[in-house]
Design a protein around this nucleic acid. Structure first.
Length: 579
RNA sequence: GCGCCUGUAGCUCAGUGGAUAGAGCAUAUCGGUUCUAACGAUGUGGUCGGGGGUUCGAAUCCCUCCAGGCGUACCA
């Protein structure tokens, strides 16, 4: 709809001989300004040497001669806006068509690799990973919705000091508790995952406290790189348990079609050697030696200098990431490669991309680093070093159990849910509440997650959106089959008209959200749709009406439901039929 | 010190050059027990961190100052 109006304006400007303007048509905030407004007159005024108001008159006069079937009114407003009001019948026509395939995007057909979550084997899957996963999955879905070919990948640190700390802790714990690796293998996944968490905590604490432990951990680290046999037995087991555990979390969050949530899992161990080769190849041109290490002299480019190969000859995260970028491109020659991480490594990525641009400029030009803030909980930040972490799973479980309580005490319990339904609905509502809570605001900044707000089911929350969807389902179920209605017999109320205008903006909103990598754009839009529908629902009966009006209101209800369902699914949020 | 990010209502946040800056929560008042009461309406609440500049027009762009966060060499 917006594109149609833009085209109309472009045509008119051509006729008037005005070219080269950036035509901007935006939905209006205030109904008295029509449905869409454009500011082209301000830009054109300079070219014509007239005032914006006069220019607006000239342009709108030309627009009116078009006699377009979309438009009802074209008005000029001070100091030079052109306000466009759509006619009711075009809005009603738009209601009847399914959401268009979004073909006009520049992202259409693009090959996009998107890396997110990136938890480290042997360590906890904490809230930061949960956030990264939720953000990444939503962006992936947005990109798919506008026609991109998306490949999800996950990059995991399976070597390095954190692994050595965990291995050290495993050895200590097994000795203390007098258990063998075989004993452990017989235990449940949850127990094994907990064991690893505990082991990491022991290792991390001892590393700080005991000089002897520190030495031993450094030695274990080296052994891992050397693939020492004895260490590898323990290593392989621990790594497998971690990955198995992560996969379980992904299943819950991403609803994967296949066995694996990601198309490809990259590991630091494989990226490292490739990275070392690259760094060595460009050692005297891009990189240089300094204090026994190989560094990238970022200060020359207004950035930080960073170590790529440390003085022990081991690759740091920087070198690994360099190897990763090249490996990724080899696996899948992407048009865009997105990496989603926390924003504390923003500057590190700047350095990395600068170095990469000097080695592989084409690949570097295709990389986009998107960073998100930290999740703050009312309980305060948690550190993974103390072992006292808040895991992603804990957060989900807590939200689900709160959702279960809310469902029990709900006054609107008309759904008569069976026990089995209660369980699956609680899961959808709890997980949905978490996702909505994290995605409703922009991703660049820290996000405060509060159970009270997110699972309270009031106001701007996931459950509010889901409930509105359920409401549409309930009405439609009672209504029976939808019937045709005659457009001309529908007197549109203010609420209905606003809803129609808003619904017609769905495609534009998805496009904008995808191009800006911005899930919260969708969330803001959906919340508006839900609010408007609830207002409409409050004021206008649906099933009690008859004939055309009833048919129209049912159709409107159906479209709202479909829009909410499609939009929520872009955020990775499921919609129950009852709740 | 230097670099990057952030600062909008009491709280949590929308709003990346347009018109009178909007929501949710909280608070006060009111309506609705139906088509699922997990809803809706109205009111209170703002020097958009301060100051300067660019522009017909600035929360939005530029400069500067203030406050907070992160980074700043072998962690990721």
């Amino acid at each position: 709809m917006r594109q149609d109006i833009e085209q109309l304006i472009r045509d008119s400007l051509n006729i008037l001989g005005i070219n080269g303007l950036h035509i901007q048509v935006v939905p209006t905030v205030d109904e008295s300004h029509g449905d869409y407004a454009t500011n082209v007159a301000f830009q054109a005024a300079k070219k014509l040497g007239k005032s914006p108001l006069e220019t607006a008159e000239i342009i709108s006069h030309e627009l009116r001669t078009k006699n377009n079937e979309l438009i009802d009114k074209i008005e000029v407003a001070k100091p030079g806006f052109i306000n466009i009001t759509l006619n009711d019948s075009s809005l009603l026509k738009d209601l009847m068509i399914e959401h268009k395939k979004l073909g006009s995007s520049e992202l259409m057909g693009k090959k996009i690799m998107i890396e997110f979550t990136d938890p480290n084997p042997f360590k906890e899957f904490h809230i930061g990973h949960l956030y990264s996963n939720i953000v990444g999955e939503s962006i992936a879905r947005l990109l798919e919705a506008v026609g991109a070919e998306v490949r999800r990948v996950c990059y995991q640190g399976d070597v390095g000091l954190h692994v050595a700390k965990a291995l050290y802790g495993m050895i200590q714990l097994m000795r203390e508790k007098n258990i063998t690796l075989e004993n452990l293998k017989g235990k449940s996944l949850k127990e094994r995952a907990n064991f690893l968490g505990e082991a990491y905590a022991v290792g991390a604490t001892q590393y700080e406290k005991e000089e002897s432990a520190k030495k031993e951990i450094v030695a274990i680290n080296k052994k891992v790189y050397e693939k020492d046999r004895e260490v590898m037995t323990l290593y392989t087991a621990g790594k497998d348990w971690s990955l198995e555990y992560f996969e379980q979390v992904y299943k819950r969050l991403m609803d994967p079609i296949s066995d694996h949530a990601f198309t490809r899992y990259y590991f630091e161990s494989e990226a490292g050697s490739k990275g070392i080769d690259l760094v060595k190849k460009y050692k005297d041109t891009v990189f240089e030696e300094s204090q026994g290490a190989v560094i990238f002299p970022g200060e020359r480019y207004g950035l930080h200098s960073r170590v790529f190969i440390n003085s022990l000859g081991l690759p740091t995260y920087e070198a690994k990431e360099l190897g990763l970028a090249v490996t990724k491109y080899h696996d899948y020659p992407f048009d865009v490669s997105i990496m989603i991480t926390g924003n504390e490594i923003d500057e590190y990525f700047r350095v990395l991309l600068k170095a990469l641009s000097m080695i592989e400029p084409e690949i570097a030009a295709k990389m986009r680093h998107i960073s998100h803030g930290m999740v703050r909980l009312p309980e305060g930040k948690m550190s993974s070093r103390t072992g006292n972490v808040i895991t992603g799973e804990w957060l989900l479980n807590e939200a689900v159990s709160r959702a279960t309580e809310k469902i029990k005490e709900a006054k609107a319990e008309g759904g008569k849910l069976s026990e089995g339904e209660k369980e699956s609905v609680s899961e959808m509502v709890g997980v949905g509440a978490v996702k909505w809570g994290l995605l409703r605001s922009g991703i660049g900044k820290d996000v405060e997650f509060s159970f009270d707000e997110s699972v309270s089911f009031e106001g701007n929350s996931g459950p509010y959106l889901q409930y509105t969807y359920v409401r549409t389902r309930s009405v439609l179920e009672k209504a029976g089959d939808l019937t045709q209605f005659s457009e001309s017999k529908i007197p549109l109320s203010a609420e209905e008209r606003s809803l129609l205008v808003l619904l017609s903006q769905y495609s534009d909103t998805v496009l904008e959200a995808a191009e800006r990598y911005s899930p919260n754009t969708i969330a803001t839009y959906l919340f508006e749709v839900a609010q408007l529908y609830n207002l409409f629902y409050q004021k206008h009966p649906i099933l009690k009406e008859e004939g055309d009006v009833r048919a129209f209101r049912l159709k409107l209800t159906e479209k709202v439901g479909k829009t909410l369902q499609a939009g929520l699914s872009l955020l990775g949020i499921k919609t129950p039929d009852k709740m």
